[in-house]
Structure formats: C-alpha cells, structure tokens
Nucleic acid binder design. Structure first.
Lengths: 245, 245
DNA sequence: TAAAATTTGTTCGTATGTATA
DNA sequence: GTATACATACGAACAAATTTT
C-alpha cells in the first residue's frame, strides 16, 4: 500500500485525508478483504500504512464507527461489524426484490412522492412518446431489512398509468403495481450505468456516509411487444451494492 | 438546485466546498445538460445558485479549467470545452474497441507491466483452476484519441497463455492477442459492476481529476465451450464513460 | 499475583488549508 | 488584497482498559 500523505494530499486536493483513509478501510471491508468480527490493525500500524498521523486514522475510524461499519473496544482493538456488499443482478428479466431475495429478508419500496410532468426530449425518446406527453413521475425509496438500498425516479405515460403511485405505495413493488394495470410480464430494455458523488437529497434519503459514491442506473422497462412502459433513474449506494450483469 | 453551503458543508464533511461545486458543474457537462461551446452562468449567479462565496466558485472553475473541461475568457465568460460521456456497451459479445467505435477515433491499449502470479481463492474460482496455479498478470491502459479511458488488470492461465503480455503490447487489443493464441471467438461470462473513489495509482495513470469516481468492472471472458479464459478488473473514469448493458 | 507490553482514549500546542466578509 | 473564523493535520505526551509475559 502506498503512502497517502505525500501522494494523496497532493493528488486529491479538496478531499480531507481522514475521509480518504476512511474510504480505503471501508473498501477493504465491503470488498471482502476483511470480514465481520475481524480485528483491524492497530491505530499506529494503520497510521504507518497510510503515512498519516494517528489522529487522522482515529478520525477515520470514528466516522466508520458512526456508520456502523466498525466498532472500537478500549484496550482491545477495533473490529469489523458490517458485512460485504449485496449483489443486484441486471439482465433481461430484472426484478428488484427477486434479485436480492436470499441476500436480505424484508425488501420493500415506499413511495416518496408522485406528480405530473410533461415529457422532455430525452424522456420522450426513452418512452417512445411525443415530447410534451403527460407523464406520471414517482419518487421511491427501496429498503432491505430497514437499510436504504435504492433511490429511484420513475416515469410512466399518464394516459395508461394514472394512479400508478397509489398502486406502488400499496404493493411496494413495481412488478405488482404494473400487474394492477394489466401488465403480467415485462422485461428490461436498455440499462445505462454510471457513477458519481451523491447529491444532498440522495445523501439524506439513502442515509449515506458524507461524500459517498452512488451507482446510477438509467433504464427502461418494456412490455412483451417491445413497447416502453417505464423509464427510471435509480441511484444505489456503491458501498452497499454491486450490479451483476 | 438546492444550496450547498448550509446543506452540504454539514452533510459532506471532509470534502471541500470548491470541490463539491466543481463536481456539480462537471456533472452538468458530462451529463449533457451543458454542451461544448455553451456559456456557463457568471461567477456571481453561480455563487448565488450554490450558496457559496464567489472565491469558492472561482476556485472550482479554475480546477475545471486545468482539467480542460471549461475555459475562461477574460471579459466574456466561461465556456464548456469538453464533450459528454462515451457509452461502452456491455453484453455477451463485449469488445472494448468495437464498443467505442464511432464514438472515438484512435483506440488502443498499451501494456504497463506483466508478471507471474499464483491464483488465490477468488481468482481460482473465477478462472476455474486450482488455487496456486501459475497465472500471467497484465496491467494495461486503454486510450481513445489520447485520453485514458480504462485501466485494467487481467489474469490468464500461464500454461496456455505464456507471453500474452507481448502479444497485447504488439496488437494493443485483447481480442487480437487472444487470436494469436488460437482463440478465434470468445464471449463475456459474468460482469460485476461497482464504483468507488480512485486510488493514487489510478488517479495518476488515468489522468483523473483529484477525488474522482471510477466505475469498476470485475468480469470474466469465456471461450465458446464456456471455459474461463481471462479474468479482468477494469477501472473506468465515471465522468468520461458510462456502461450500457 | 505482578509487571510489561499493547491498544484505545484524551489533552495540550502549532501550522496550514478552507471559506467568508 | 486583507482580515477573521473554523476545519484539517501533525506532534508529543499521558491516561485507561486489556492482554501477555
């Protein structure tokens, strides 16, 4: 492991050292190098490894402790408490709850808000409608065992899906809400994946560590005839979830 | 757009305000909200929009100017110079250069280093070999029109692919290097996608903006019989590329 | 049981970076 | 450009809990 002090302090101007150290340690944990129950190296060895002061390591560890990723025990050491990332499979038949079944118990989605919107150029192309078409827009949050796993924005044609938000709110699932509108089966059209820093609203709703990274999936679900049903922009916390293609 | 000062300064401790402002503006550009040639809002309106001091906006813009994303013209304003993200298609037939053909002209890969390694538990499982098997490990960098687009680490069984690094160095392409070893066709097995902050080495080799986000693809290529050929861990700059499934 | 070594926790001081007015 | 307030990072010491010798 290279030193951070000389290299990173210069390389990553604008990002505090304690945050970089915290990110590096969290990566070891969610990446599987360290398992729940494992004891981390001592504060001094860690400070040595990253080339920073012990205070800087302590601050990083205290942040990770607040996140619930590690816990410190006076006189004994610091231990890993959280587990590794969940895997969310993406393919032609992509279903959120089914994909995570077996990895988490209680998976449910909640409706944050619903409103009407006119299709702009991009959405019109994605949904194969004329620009200006009335759309239902829903904002949702999905949780697994109480932990936020996805923050999504969805758009559907209002003419066909008036009241979709209510259906989602009651069922907690896109698949079941679509079922209420007579869609028995659907599949995934395209999925575009990118990544960036979480914005303010995402940090809050996903209960994210400050400055965290989100995976962004920009996707369209289509019916069996290939017609677009549902465009969505989903943000996943990158340290809790990975996408499997 | 919400204010950053009150919300983010508290929410994203450890990340300087000028960096958050720079990231937000860069996102508008690579996300397509602003196009090359467009004029950015003035410094004072921007300061107002983000709820920060004008000096803070100036620092953000000067960083973006150093990256080559915008250029400031004395007395006229600040203009967008860089283009939006490239799209890299991922599917059963995934080929790096083919996937980007049409979006960039000169695409080539260069070999950074090659060495021998013994398979650990994870690699052994991915390549379907016994732990301890001798592997060729190659470190590569791919560029499109001179801009670094991917930093990859690849592993292949040494018994079959001795000298793979040389073949890659000469051809600049995995597909062509495999061809030299008698592999006429191959396809993509699994692909796991995650995201995180770039580490020191990645920041350097990909010429990344400090504190940047990388998309990480952990994938295995298989031959027509379904046997694993090539395990790879590829890091893409999230603000230059998106993955399309 | 007792002493020594480890490890986390706390308190000073000082220098530099960040952000505002 | 200057001044001010706060966050960041380092260094040295000491205290308290725990394990090892």
């Amino acid at each position: 492991m290279t030193k951070l002090s000389a290299d990173l302090a210069a390389a990553a101007g604008g990002v505090a050292l304690w945050r970089q150290v915290a990110d590096a340690i969290r990566l070891d944990i969610v990446g599987g190098k360290l398992s729940p129950g494992d004891r981390l190296a001592g504060e001094l060895p860690l400070a040595e490894r990253f080339g920073v002061n012990r205070h800087t390591v302590r601050r990083a560890l205290s942040v990770l402790a607040e996140e619930g990723v590690v816990r410190a025990e006076h006189g004994r050491g610091t231990f890993v408490s959280a587990a590794r990332r969940l895997s969310y499979p993406i393919g032609r038949r992509t279903r959120f709850s089914e994909g995570l079944a077996g990895q988490a118990r209680a998976i449910r989605g909640q409706l944050l808000s619903e409103r009407l919107e006119r299709a702009g150029a991009g959405l019109a192309r994605a949904l194969a409608v004329r620009p200006g078409t009335r759309l239902v827009r829903i904002e949702t949050l999905s949780l697994a065992d109480g932990r936020p796993l996805a923050r999504a924005t969805g758009w559907l044609e209002e003419a066909r899906f008036r009241g979709f938000g209510d259906a989602y709110a009651e069922t907690g699932s896109v698949t079941q809400a679509l079922h209420r509108f007579g869609i028995d089966d659907y599949s995934r059209g395209s999925t575009r994946i990118s990544a960036r820093h979480a914005d303010v609203e995402e940090s809050r709703s996903l209960a994210l560590a400050p400055g965290a990274v989100v995976l962004v999936s920009d996707a369209v679900d289509i019916d069996t005839a290939g017609r677009p049903l549902h465009a969505m922009l989903t943000r996943f916390p990158a340290d809790r979830l990975e996408l499997v293609v």
